[in-house]
Design a protein around this nucleic acid. Structure first.
Lengths: 132, 132
DNA sequence: CTGGATCCTCCCGGATACTG
DNA sequence: CAGTATCCGGGAGGATCCAG
């Protein structure tokens, strides 16, 4: 069964993960860790899911995501843009108008996240049954 | 396209995510956020991937995961056990012997994580091509 | 409207020493 | 061998005010 989950003949993610934890090899980080880092942080997921299929402006996002501050929204959007998950379209108008949307890569991430959510909900259901 | 990603007719994860961010509704957290929390932390992923299909003892894990301390290994294993991802089997022997392995739920998580890793690696490949 | 700059708090995780 | 106990620093994220 070893390496049965390897992707396209690359180094087995299992080994890659272990390398990723090696402080002597910080450059060889696991691809799963890399992917998780892209959506890490308190507000990335709400942003991704709020965007969904839509094109949304800054203050719309702020309204749709209760509790987020301008600073956290700005920095989260910036990081998501830098790793290619969202598009940022700025119009030179007064007052300013900036529109955010998911890239194709961002759109392709959504079903995977829903798989993960479904996995978690099944797990909780099982636990609830065991606990009565 | 709305709700096109809904899981089994449940509330659309998009709405669930936004509820999850609502400080007035802390109990209604998004299933994706819940799932991500289960594997959150610096050492959860290395542990899961090191276990893989194997049954591994405490100090074996410690050796296989460079940099981890006993304390972080203990607490991470505990959290993973509590949410049903790993099994803990303790034998009453001297010296002590405790074996850890993935539960069925834990095993079913691995392919999803590899999907995520594959998604991330594709995204990076695309970016590299764009940047030359 | 779309952010930036500053200050502050909390807690994750590291270091070290100890135990049944 | 398989953990505990304690102390501590750094960074993520919140609050508030400011700006083009």
């Amino acid at each position: 069964m070893k390496n049965s989950h390897c992707i396209n003949g690359e180094i087995c993610p299992i080994n890659a993960v272990k390398q990723g934890t090696n402080i002597h090899n910080p450059g060889t980080e696991c691809i799963i860790t890399q992917a998780l880092k892209m959506i890490d942080g308190k507000w990335k997921l709400p942003i991704i899911c709020t965007l969904g299929q839509q094109v949304v402006r800054f203050n719309e996002l702020k309204r749709e995501i209760p509790g987020i501050t301008s600073m956290m929204l700005t920095s989260s959007l910036k990081e998501l843009e830098e790793c290619g998950i969202i598009n940022r379209e700025s119009y030179n108008e007064v007052p300013p108008k900036v529109e955010y949307s998911l890239t194709d890569a961002g759109l392709s991430l959504v079903p995977i996240l829903f798989d993960l959510g479904y996995w978690g909900s099944k797990l909780n259901t099982t636990k609830d049954m065991v606990n009565g």
